[in-house]
Design a protein around this nucleic acid. Structure first.
Lengths: 239, 239
DNA sequence: GCGACAGTTCGGTATCGATCAAACCATTCG
DNA sequence: CGAATGGTTTGATCGATACCGAACTGTCGC
């Protein structure tokens, strides 16, 4: 079984605390420098360097040189998806024993970046709104942007690459521990996050994947997308 | 980050050759005994026992005692999904270097079990047929069996649990290295595989996940489902 | 009861790999 | 140029863990 050996290699790479921390940090979608990642993982720069070269060698990360910094990012959506699914299993793996339910968890549950798009309650809410507005329909290939949806989203400021057939987007059920509903990933998902950030409707936490909706964002999401946000009230209720 | 630690644990469990072999063997969907798994992984029974208790402890596997044997199986579809997604990343991880493209690979590409349902070219073909026949539609929750579809599938011999709302099935894009299309998982997927095996339309390979279509199966799939199978011809072509 | 078989537990070995410090290379900036 | 900064390489250390054999528990069939 040649394939099994490969699977072992990939899993073993994730199965180390320092490397997993690095990968988790990059799940935010940003590109981070080696020094920054070393700090996050709380290891020396030499160890971090070793880990990073392994991860790049296994094509889990890509690296781009800019000035005298090396920026690392997740290599592909497939890798992000894999990490999400591992995290999903890890979440059910501890059922009752010692669930801290920290306010940090609550923040992530509310809204977070998943690799390059929005997830959590916020991501799901936006996906729902777009579907019920007829901007997006879901097909067996994941989903498509309708013509009116393309119009609407372009007006809103998304770069939708009008020529190609890339109107197709990639929707999928959220694998995370929190919601189990669809959110919007792929090119459209990435563009939405970019535009929201640009408009300062959302703010990303400096050192986690959490995403907070600003005051203007709250108004904008309500007026433009029809998304009502009593998120914070919800999030604080116990299930 | 409490969640990260957990993720590390799960990934580390998969990141060992013996344990990954065990998990892969169980991805066929059957329950296997500890002795059998030790043989597959080529380790002594004591080592296997240690691995298995770890895997059960982490809820990746479940165990049921029967007579004087202990039967192990994958604990949940979520675990199966995670393993598939790791394998998918591992498959792209080696691009050109040493792709054997064995006849065994071809067999798996053709048709295979994925945990408890059909995947590969065969699984996708059946999903396509069911969709175009109107037996199944896909919604944003994954998919549903239509009324006529339920009628058809019940007649065909599936146990569909008519009372509950479990007409909903779980469709998802195939994450494997081969097809990137939908197949049918969940209860309906498992029932399909069961019924096909019962009718001897398909045969499972003894010691891999490969599934072969029998002669009667070929006829049956064509006449009942409208699935045309020139699979073998396709499979042997180079991409 | 007594073998035969399935599985676990224990003790000991050996290997693997994560880690760091220090030296080294390369780029930028004063 | 030389100092500073980002990153890699090297060599040594050390803890974790995969592995086995042997002894043990428990169940089945004769």
């Amino acid at each position: 079984m040649a394939a099994a050996a490969n699977m072992v290699e990939v899993a073993a790479l994730v199965g180390d605390t320092a490397r997993a921390t690095i990968l988790s940090a990059l799940m935010g979608g940003q590109a981070l420098t080696a020094r920054e990642l070393a700090a996050r993982a709380r290891v020396s720069k030499s160890t971090a360097s070793g880990h990073l070269s392994k991860l790049v060698g296994a094509r889990l990360l890509t690296v781009t040189q800019k000035r005298r910094n090396r920026y690392y990012r997740i290599a592909s959506p497939l890798v992000a998806k894999m990490l999400e699914s591992i995290k999903a299993v890890a979440a059910i793996e501890t059922p009752a024993r010692h669930q801290p339910r920290s306010t940090q968890d609550d923040r992530l549950r509310m809204g977070r970046t998943c690799y390059d798009h929005l997830a959590g309650r916020l991501g799901v809410g936006i996906a729902d709104a777009l579907v019920s507005n007829g901007c997006v329909v879901l097909t067996d290939d994941g989903g498509e942007v309708t013509d009116s949806g393309a119009h609407f989203l372009s007006n809103f400021g998304l770069a939708l690459a009008p020529n190609t057939k890339s109107k197709r987007i990639f929707c999928r059920p959220c694998l995370d521990w929190s919601e189990r509903r669809y959110h919007i990933a792929g090119h459209v998902g990435a563009e939405l996050l970019r535009r929201f950030t640009e408009l300062e409707w959302v703010e990303r936490d400096r050192d986690s994947r959490a995403v907070r909706v600003t005051a203007t964002g709250k108004v904008g999401l309500r007026d433009v997308f029809g998304v009502a946000l009593e998120f914070h009230d919800h999030a604080l209720r116990t299930p």
